[in-house]
Every structure is written in C-alpha cells, then in structure tokens.
Amino acid sequence: MGKKVVQGGELLFKEDIIIDEEAVRMQLTIPSRIPIFSIDEMQVFYNSHVFTLTKNSSKDAMIKVYTTEYGLNEEKSPKLQEDEYFKANTAEVNKLKEEFIKKAVIGMPDNCYDKSLEKQACLTLVEKINHAYDIAEHSYKAPPSKGLVPKLSDDSIFNTYIGDFERAMLLDGKVYRLETIQEYLSMFQKAIEPKFYKELEKKSVLMTPEEAFKELTDNRHKIHPWGFPFIRNKIWYNEKSFKIFLDGIYWIPKFASTSKNAEEKYRNAIERKIKTDAAEEGFGK
C-alpha cells in the first residue's frame, strides 16, 4: 500500500495515480511547420551550422550550380529556429501539453498538496516517455575540417538527436552526404590501378575538382572503362558541373537517403520534448 494523502477530505494513495502507457506513446499533432525540414530550398549542414544559397558569391563558401556561383549564407542556428518554433506556437503547444497530461496521468488531483508525490509521478512519466521514444543522442562525427568553419555549439534537438548531418545537404526531400574527393575516389579503389590509386589518394587532398578531372582523364587507361565515367563525371565534367567549396575543401554530394526518416525522427524528438516538458512542468494548476 502506498502513501496515504489527505486530499480535499478524500484519501489518495500512490497506487491511485496511474500512468497510461498507451497515452504516453500516443502521437501528438505537433505544429506542422517544423524547423529545418519545412524550409523549401537547398540547405547545407556543416559542423552544426546551416547554410542556404545566396546570390552574393563568396570565394570561401560557395556552391556552383550549372553556370552560376552562389555564396553560402549562414541561416539561424537550429537551436534558434527551434526556440522560434516553440515561441510562435506557444498556445498550441501548451494545449498539447495539457491534453497529454490529462490523458497520460490518471488519478492526479488538480492541486496535489503532496509535492513529493507529484514529483515522483513526474519522474516516472518522464522515464516512460523516454522509454517509449527510444531516441538516443547521436555521436557526432567531425568532418575532415580545415578549421575555417568551427563546430557550432548548439544543443538543439536537431543537432543532438538527428544524426548524419555533420556534413550534408538537403534538397527536394533528399539527403546527400558531402564527401571529399579523396573519400569519393576511395569507393572506386578496385577499379583503379593500385599504383595510380596511391598517387591519386595523396594528391587528391589538395586537388580542385577540375584538377582531379584532368588527372583522371590523363590516366584513364589506368581506370576500368566501365568505372571511369562514374569516377570522373561526378567530381567534375565541364564548366556546367556542380561544385561545392566550404571550409577550404571541395565536396562531392553523394546521395544518402530520402529525408523521410530523418524528418520523422525529428518530429518524434519534438513530440517527446513537448511531452517531457509537460511532465517536468508538473501537474499543478
């Protein structure tokens, strides 16, 4: 038998407070325009920063699309975007919190005089929410940085829980991983003559895409004919080729996945935050 509490002239036992696990797992209809994934244009993610394309070209951070060079404009940090999201949707989020507590915690009086009992119920609820969502912090994989764009200290939900965006690009619902020329070449090691590959591996660290193109073209007899176009043309082909330069490094965008899973994970992480905030804010009115 749990603790007995006199509450409004009635007896209240700890056992009377029930956490409804189904309600804990229940999906919330969170405000739809979530940060990052609601932005309808190409975004580049690097060391926790977010960039979009700008017409003001820059030599230090640029993307060349077809025949035009664009600069990369730093957007608001994910943390700032999330703060703005929660602020802009305060009323809606508060309503979700209230409804969630009403459904998830059964038996808790409106004004619980025993704060230790309320705290215990809160902790139990938070624990159950975290268990229901199973979203762990992702381990940050630092890109091969030149240190020109240092990692942004950002404890946003996006940067803490949504992995594989340390160096990535988001375009049209697709995620591309940014690879160095050296990393890109390494996928084709078996199609390249070993001696030439070793030379290329060393040189490629300092190469521009155009230089890599020339080196590969000049030595195409050392590359398997079927592999050659895959190896060369994605790095650079002609003056209309796509190119991205950031943090002193040329990157090759390589398709990783659609953004559906990352977006769903992000929505879940936002939903979890709303629920845990609701639990931590207590049940008293």
Binding site: V65, L171, K174, N233, K234, W236, Y237, F242, P253
Partner: peptide, 13 residues
Amino acid sequence: IEPDSMLDLNTTT
C-alpha cells in the same frame, strides 16, 4: 536515379 547516377547534381535533378 541518384544511387546509380554518374552525373553531377544539377544534371541528375
């Protein structure tokens, strides 16, 4: 076609 594309990003799009 991304996984198999031998073309650059804008051509693929």
